[in-house]
């Protein structure tokens, strides 16, 4: 009995190893295939966006042929866009709002995260939980009162209102992420002695 098991034990590992290897390879290729399918599905809208941006207005209004591909590619749309004075204004607006939002929310959230996570004071744990909880207030709840507040500040239809609103929505999340990072960062330079 034990002898049989021993000889079987000598033979089995090699065969088992090969089959395991084959199984792993199948799992690997299966994963690649499935991921490929998902990537194709995920990239359909961006692909269609690029294709449409290369079409001429005539080709779009012609409504003939396969809409998934561009038949007479042209860069005219992009050229027109950059020639448009309005668009340059919009682009600058976006860039400015993004810069202001990112810098304001970074300054506020890095300072606060450092204060909350590394310089623990009395009640800092409670406050950290409070910051986390504000992220649970849905934006849709805020936009009507914010509309009133922005109206009271006289900022309706003003780009500057966005520089106030966007950081508000971003800061609690940023602080929460930053708190994790500053709690993990090396503490040596904060040592007491």
């Amino acid at each position: 009995m034990s002898g049989a098991a021993a000889t079987a034990g000598v033979l089995v590992p090699a065969r088992r190893h090969a089959s395991l290897h084959r199984q792993r390879a199948w799992a690997l290729w299966g994963s690649y295939a499935a991921l490929g399918v998902f990537v194709i599905m995920f990239l359909v809208p961006p692909f269609y966006m690029v294709m449409t941006s290369l079409k001429s207005p005539a080709e779009i209004s012609g409504q003939a042929g396969n809409p998934w591909f561009v038949h007479h590619p042209t860069l005219q749309n992009f050229i027109d866009l950059f020639m448009m004075r309005d668009f340059r204004g919009f682009f600058l607006n976006s860039a400015m709002i993004t810069t202001v939002t990112v810098s304001v929310s970074m300054v506020i959230s890095v300072l606060a995260a450092f204060g909350l996570a590394r310089m623990g004071f009395k009640g800092s744990q409670t406050l950290a939980t409070g910051v986390f909880l504000t992220y649970l207030i849905p934006n849709s709840l805020l936009f009507i009162p914010l509309f009133q507040i922005i109206g009271a500040l006289g900022l309706i239809n003003n780009v500057r209102a966005l520089a106030l609103i966007y950081p508000t929505l971003a800061v609690p999340f940023c602080t929460w992420i930053m708190m994790g990072i500053s709690a993990r960062s090396p503490a040596s330079w904060m040592k007491r002695h």
């Binding site: 300054v107 300072l111 450092f114 204060g115 800092s124 709840l141 009162p145 507040i149 950081p167 602080t175």
Partner: peptide, 29 residues
């Protein structure tokens, strides 16, 4: 801890002014 509180104060001001106050204001409205 005062320094830490000072560092957190912009965050608290922002949250109090533009999250907590509007949320309560929404209930009132």
């Amino acid at each position: 801890s005062t320094v830490a509180l000072l560092m957190c104060s912009p965050l608290f001001l922002l949250i109090a002014g533009l999250v907590v106050y509007p949320a309560i204001y929404a209930i009132y409205l």
